[in-house]
Amino acid sequence: MKNSKTIVFKRQQAILKALKEKNVVHVENIAQKLNVSATTVRRDLQMFEQQHLVERFHGGAKLLRETLKEEDSALLVQSDKGISQKHIIAKYAASLIEEGDTVFLNSSSTALLILDYLKNTRAVVVTNNGNAIGHNKDSKVELIITGGEVYERKQSMVGDFALHTLSKITADKAFIGVSGISVKGGITTSVLQETAVNEMMLKRCQGSCYIVAANFKIGKEHNFLSGAVEQVSEIITVEGADKEEVKKLKNTGIDIVELANIND
Rank of each mutant, 00 (worst) to 15 (best):
I7M: 09
N128M: 11
H164F: 13
I256T: 03
V124R: 11
Q85D: 05
N35L: 11
D116Q: 08
V197S: 01
A94P: 03
V150G: 05
T195L: 09
H87Q: 14
I30T: 14
L63T: 13
I15V: 12
K5L: 10
V183A: 03
N261Q: 05
V27R: 11
E221A: 08
I236H: 07
M201F: 06
S95V: 10
G82C: 13
S4Q: 05
F57V: 11
K20Y: 00
D264K: 11
E21M: 08
L68E: 08
N136R: 15
N261W: 07
F175H: 08
I235E: 08
K250M: 14
Q193P: 04
V25Y: 15
I169K: 05
K203S: 02
V27E: 07
S190Q: 07
I114N: 02
V158Y: 04
N136F: 14
L34S: 06
V25N: 15
D160I: 12
R42A: 06
G219L: 12
S95K: 12
V212I: 06
K10V: 01
V183E: 03
S226K: 01
G59H: 10
I235R: 10
N215V: 03
L166E: 07
K17G: 12
Y117L: 06
S156F: 06
S167V: 13
K33V: 10
S109K: 01
G159F: 03
G60K: 09
I83V: 15
I187L: 01
A93N: 05
G159T: 00
T188I: 00
T195A: 01
A111F: 04
V178A: 01
K119L: 14
